[in-house]
Amino acid sequence: MTVSSQYAKPLPGESPESKPYWEAARRHELVFQSCGSCGRKIHFPRVVCPGCLSRNLQWRKALGIGSVYSYTIIYRQGVHPGFASDIPYVYAIIELEEGVRMISNVINVDPLKVTIGMKVNVVFDDVTDKVSIPKFEPLQGKGLDKKASCQL
């Protein structure tokens, strides 16, 4: 685990509506919102459903499995200088089995081996003692909680 003061990248937690998301991530659970009115699955967290504008949203736990929808391998320093030491790294859109898409990194793999459609599972990067960031790695097929998405 990295010590807080050594983490040189931006930390999440800016938006109040995403608080439950980051609390779940701290427990190593990947969650998303589901609309109680129209059933839409939602990421990033919001106070209203972007489909029907209902406020009736519930948090659900994701299986933590998905696939790479698109990706890029970044070879130059991005906007934030903290990522310079990771170059080259994979910045990707992951589509979860539940259907929501999220920006993340694909890690624990040679970037040149990443492909669109590659199956991945979530892995939590404990970047400080309070913050864990969901990232993805090629599907391991072991040590995963395979039970279906459930209401928290």
Binding site: P10, S15, I74, G78, V79, Y91, I93
Partner: peptide
């Protein structure tokens, strides 16, 4: 410029976006 928007900060910037470069790379790749 990007980080002032909380949801962009929390669900994009923290993963090392290269802004337009990475956005258009995702589109071209797809």
């Amino acid at each position: 410029a990007q980080a002032v928007i909380p949801f962009v900060h929390d669900f994009d910037s923290i993963y090392g976006s290269m802004l337009d470069n990475s956005a258009y790379a995702l589109i071209k790749q797809r």
